[in-house]
Design a binder for these strands. Structure first.
Lengths: 241, 241
DNA sequence: ACAATCAAATTGTATATACAAGTAAACACA
DNA sequence: TGTGTTTACTTGTATATACAATTTGATTGT
């Protein structure tokens, strides 16, 4: 054990040594890894300690194990490309901009048939409806329209959203267990074009989101980004963000 | 143990019972979980078996454990909303549609300055360049243009992509360790409009992707989807506190 | 009242042991 | 040659035990 590895538990040291061999390319996908017994001898540990190390590497997706055969380096499978959707304030803060937002609408109303269908409630039921336009350096970068189920967030209208974003508030008070996102390219309606200060015919990204809390649709949101001013991007490393 | 739980290992049964309590809301975020010793007694198991169950639930982000204090239901903060970008073939297969693709371009060439910059290579270096148009029921659903670094996939041009998609091939032979995605809304150029059989002015989603293999840019791809015909959707991933 | 100490509870790590279950190769036998 | 059988190896699960580290609350002493 090098002094560098001091302070790490034995099973951690085993994990690190294997991870390093994989990351550096010494071990390639499909290559065999030392067996539990061999690792135990190599590290002067018991088999159970080596077992723990390999078990955790399996859970992390770095290796695969086949009973009766052995352990092997996993084939890196970023077959799921993931794109992280951050809050607009987060995005702007990241590159140092100044965030502000205009409240366009903020009230309780009867829900239309169209939205009711999306939220799995009855047309005419009461919902909270809010529209904000978010700006960076006074340039509109996002139109956000939300419908909130009062059964999930009964005090939505009483909140002060100058300090906390609606998303943050909803995450705070409701146990959001599921969400669904849909992205499409659109040419927004005139009213939204005006709010976003864009020319007619300029394409925008439309991001629609539904969230659920205990089988109840908690929110239905429509976020619109001007295509010329905003990009969604994400970088991942081996499955993790 | 109910008969339903037959076939599961003891530690699995413990995990399932706790997960069910969390998912059903019986246990709420922050609630205390039975200690290892209590669980061991409850399930007639040893402490180590209960330990394994709780350890794995911790790794899965469902609970948190504090030495000397106890185990508690984790506060699920799905602040990371992730879009899952699937291959076009995958999406269409799910729908049961008939997928076909036209090869528009497939050759080796000298790279332009612009693309060279994206790929971190020198202008004039050789790269493989391919353009496909994917169709579902003869309707174009995706334009895909790829630049491939020959150092990563030297035999790219020799492949038969009627059976396997370029993405799948690249995943097979190259260890892709990192990837970056950028989504924006665009109005495509005339040539692409024609290939996708869309009207002038129709907005599209542009998805640009770069992948890395051992610090080398392996591929640079530009995927364009007609906004009206294609949607990207994703679901949430449970994040740790 | 305050501070130091102690005890109990809890999680974290490590070990030795045991047996089950699966695989693959060597082996024995017809 | 072909076919079961055995054997060796590997991973999977479970247990009992031990001690370390941390936190919390109770106890004790001043």
């Amino acid at each position: 054990m090098s002094s560098f590895e001091k302070g790490f538990a034995i099973y951690e040291r085993i994990k690190i040594s294997i991870r390093e061999k994989i990351d550096s390319g010494i071990l390639k996908p499909g290559d065999r890894i030392l067996s539990e017994v061999e690792l135990a001898n190599l590290f002067n540990a018991s088999r159970m300690t080596a077992n723990r190390a390999l078990k955790e590497l399996t859970a992390e997706g770095r290796i695969i194990r086949i009973q009766g055969v052995g352990s092997f380096v996993a084939k890196s499978k970023p077959e799921v490309a993931l794109l992280e959707i951050k809050s607009i304030a987060e995005e702007i803060a990241k590159w140092g901009g100044v965030h502000s937002s205009d409240m366009i609408l903020f009230k309780e109303e009867s829900v239309s048939k169209n939205i009711a269908g999306k939220m799995d409630i009855n047309a005419g039921d009461r919902v909270f409806h809010s529209i904000f336009v978010h700006k960076d350096e006074d340039i509109p970068v996002q139109y956000s329209e939300r419908f909130i189920n009062p059964r999930v967030a009964p005090k939505y209208l009483e909140q002060d959203f100058t300090k906390m974003t609606p998303s943050e508030y909803l995450l705070e008070i409701a146990a959001i267990q599921e969400s669904e996102h849909t992205i499409e390219a659109i040419i927004p309606k005139k009213a939204i074009q005006k709010l976003l200060q864009i020319k007619h015919g300029e394409p925008c990204i439309s991001l629609k989101r539904r969230t659920w809390s205990f089988d109840l649709v908690a929110t239905y949101s429509i976020l619109i980004y001007p295509g010329s001013k905003y990009k969604l991007s994400g970088k991942i490393r081996r499955g993790k963000i």
